[in-house]
């Protein structure tokens, strides 16, 4: 564990909490992409199957369970409890265009051709693009993202950016790297870059955020 990873994990956790609180307090999931949230739930489910096979640390297991739990609750709130407020008409990104190629890539490019390993690889690839329906939703409607949603996206983006710092650190300190995780992590971070720029130039100056289509 190093500082980049710890702060990255905490940022990841903060993102999930921000989104949950936003939905819960406003009793509405307007502006939130249910499709992105379903894909994140898939990411956690396929990656954290190792909860049953390997024990790393109490911290590791607790965080995995919390991520799974929070993501399930988020999906539940969007598709059941506050379904009436879900903006499905604007959440039109075709998820199969991401999931199918990502699944194919996971089968073709992996470290080891085994069930758990392919699912892990799938989760890494899927995570890197899972936010696209959310970004698409914000840009397509041309309507403003709520400031809270922007904070959520920022925290989620910072998490993967810090993980890149963590991988560089681990490469030099511990002498190893995971090519699949690094490439996917970089793709993921790049997808957030445009958003980061808008976030810093607009949200921090008190304006609302729009992503040009």
């Amino acid at each position: 564990m190093n500082i980049f990873r710890l702060v990255g994990d905490l940022s990841h956790l903060a993102a999930l909490i921000i989104l949950l609180l936003k939905i819960w307090k406003s009793r509405s999931c307007a502006g939130v992409s249910g499709k992105s949230q379903i894909m994140f739930a898939m990411v956690y489910m396929t990656r954290y199957l190792d909860l049953f096979t390997t024990f790393v640390s109490v911290y590791n297991s607790v965080m995995k369970v919390v991520f799974l739990l929070f993501s399930f609750v988020t999906v539940y709130l969007i598709y059941f409890k506050f379904k009436a407020t879900y903006d499905g008409n604007h959440d039109t990104f075709r998820v199969e265009f991401l999931v199918v190629p990502v699944a194919g890539l996971a089968v073709l490019v992996n470290h080891e051709f085994s069930f758990l390993e392919i699912l892990w690889t799938f989760s890494i690839y899927l995570e890197s693009v899972a936010i696209l329906p959310q970004l698409f939703m914000i840009s397509k409607t041309g309507c403003e993202a709520e400031t809270i949603t922007s904070h959520y996206l920022f925290a989620l983006g910072i998490y993967r950016a810090l993980y890149i710092a963590n991988w560089i650190f681990r490469y030099y300190m511990e002498g190893f790297f995971d090519f699949i995780a690094i490439v996917a992590g970089c793709v993921q971070t790049i997808l957030y870059c445009d958003f980061f720029y808008l976030y810093v130039t607009k949200v921090w100056k008190g304006k609302r955020l729009t992503i040009p289509a």
Binding site: R5, D9, H12, D50, T54, V56, S57, N60, M63, K64, F67, H111, W120, Y163, N166, W167, R170, E174, F176, F177, D178, F179, I180, A181
Partner: peptide, 10 residues
């Protein structure tokens, strides 16, 4: 087995 080491991450 180098690549398995990031499995201790989240």
């Amino acid at each position: 087995d180098v690549h398995h080491n990031v499995k201790d991450e989240l």
